[in-house]
């Protein structure tokens, strides 16, 4: 990236740093719009990170690696779905269990992959657009997953806003009793939302191991799953605002790295705290403005059909 100039390389790096958050944030969003609060995003991400990495090390192409990550995320999420939807277990605790279990599982199964590097992912230069000076190479010369993350956001927005399925999903999230009375399967919709969200979180994790680092290290998600959950609140449960929020957080991460490179005389740890502190500040700002009340009406509540 050195031949592009500093601004270009910073913009480019911001997109790379933000993309895992876009995937994971959208994965949390689709579940929350269906009324499911899943605190297991962190666990889903790291399991996806490992599955994608393992596939890439085994020589699979990018498409297969991403699918492996999505499948791993969806599989682990189905455990959450079973417990919350079938056993009516406490969703907060179940999500935490998912995170603890996922982190442990990835550490255990991933020990053999530590120290290996994933093959380089080819860059897709978008014709014409990537020729624009400065912005072109920064925004339109990326691996396919960056574009996919935007595409997923567009699809999700379209699905939620303009399709019958999206309407049903939102109805289930806003008021599950009414949705049930209208004859919709609350548990069925939530199951699909959880599986989809798990798959997206898995892909978000895989982006870390396939593109961003590209290595696998125990606990490498470093709280990104939790930041993704905060992003959804920050975004008032809207897909495009998740992208905006993710890029904001990505910028904080990258500025932190660059200020280190510029030789600021501050210990690295102070700067590493920034993303977490910014997350808290963002939560406070949004919540103080009353935006928190835009949460789906049935968010985090268990549903049991009454006859």
């Amino acid at each position: 990236m050195t031949d592009y100039g500093l601004l270009t390389s910073i913009l480019h790096a911001i997109l790379v740093a933000s993309t895992p958050l876009v995937f994971a944030g959208l994965g949390a969003l689709i579940q929350e719009r269906a009324g499911v609060l899943n605190l297991g995003i962190e666990g889903l991400m790291i399991v996806g990170a490992l599955a994608g990495f393992a596939a890439a090390i085994a020589g699979q192409p990018l498409g297969i690696s991403v699918m492996a990550a999505a499948l791993a995320g969806a599989l682990l999420a189905s455990v959450f779905a079973f417990l919350v939807l079938k056993c009516l277990s406490n969703p907060v605790a179940t999500g935490l269990a998912l995170t603890l279990f996922g982190l442990g599982l990835a550490a255990l199964a991933g020990a053999q992959y530590v120290g290996r590097a994933a093959p380089q992912i080819a860059v897709w230069e978008i014709p014409l657009l990537s020729d624009i000076p400065v912005i072109g190479p920064a925004l339109f010369s990326h691996d396919p997953l960056v574009y996919l993350s935007i595409l997923v956001a567009v699809c999700l927005w379209w699905f939620l806003s303009f399709t019958r399925g999206g309407l049903v999903l939102r109805a289930v999230g806003e008021n599950h009793d009414s949705a049930h009375a209208l004859g919709f399967s609350v548990q069925g919709v939530r199951f699909l939302a959880i599986i989809t969200g798990g798959a997206l979180a898995g892909i978000g994790g895989a982006y870390l191991t396939l593109v961003q680092t590209p290595l696998f290290v125990e606990g490498m998600t470093a709280g990104r799953g939790w930041i993704a959950l905060a992003l959804v609140v920050f975004a008032s449960w809207r897909p495009f605002r998740v992208i905006a929020g993710a890029y904001l957080f990505g910028s904080v991460t990258i500025l932190q790295l660059h200020s280190q490179a510029l030789g600021l005389a501050i210990p690295a740890q102070w700067l590493s705290m920034l993303p977490y502190i910014v997350t808290i500040l963002a939560l406070v700002l949004i919540s103080a403005r009353g935006q928190g009340h835009r949460a789906p009406g049935s968010l985090g509540q268990l549903f049991r059909a009454s006859r």
Binding site: V79, A93, T94, L100, G104
Partner: peptide, 13 residues
């Protein structure tokens, strides 16, 4: 950690 997580799953289930 895996078995601690598993225990919590079973407890909740």
């Amino acid at each position: 950690q895996v078995f601690q997580g598993l225990l919590l799953f079973f407890l909740l289930g």
